[in-house]
Amino acid sequence: MVEKRGAGLWLTHVGMIIGVAFIFFPIWLAFVASTVEQQAIVRPPMPLLPGDKLVENYTRALTSGVNAPVATMLFNSAIMATGIAVGKIIISLLSAFAIVYFRFPGRQIFFWLIFVTLMLPVEVRIVPTYEVAANFGMLNSYSGLILPLIASATATFLFRQFFMTVPSELAEAARVDGARPMRFFFDILLPMSRTNIAALFVILFIFGWNQYLWPLLITTDPSMNTIVMGIKQMFPSGDDTADWPVIMATSLLAMIPPVIVVISMQRLFVRGLVDSEK
């Protein structure tokens, strides 16, 4: 490393701090707004330091919200994000196992059927997918929120890559030891994939939590709204003034779970992210 000293070092820190401030400022403002009265906001400029209405505003958001209690929306989001992460991981583990460890008729075709979906997000085929979900009676249901978003190949691709790096001898040793395929899968492959599974869980949880367009279409009943899409629903139509403290409290509540997941599992997450995009 060509180390920086003196003024250069300080400039570097100043640059980083400006960057961090740029990242933090919008969130700080939202936090301040969620701790003051509506009055403090509608008469600009709003204060830049927190007020004393934190408990009140958050309680109001969680218990009554605007259209639906935010607690309900948080619950819906948790179900959706967990469902998507777990569902994707399960079907991906199984199909990657089949593709890597077996030779069966149609393997190549299935392989390509899965992998052409690699980069096509739900937004592209939104209208017909909505019709399919509607035909299955999945509107305003958890299965409608979860199932269509499970159809993606990223996780399958990651597990396939990982399984390829597991030495063939391990499977052969297990075979000689008397393990049938599923026994090998549960006893050897699954425990060896633990870190990959955990890292992927973080990424998929955030992916699921942050979905916007799909829940917007599929849930018309406010009690089925997820929190990320529910925030927009809190803005009044027309010229009425928005209930900013509650909206900002909701925004913070919407980012807390995924942020906690990211920070607490930072190492896993960074590894998983870099791996899954390779």
Partner: peptide
Amino acid sequence: TEPMDRDIAMVFQTYALYPHM
């Protein structure tokens, strides 16, 4: 016959030990 039913045991070049056990 499947390997497991042949009453054999094998030692591999890379040992093939299960890393998590």
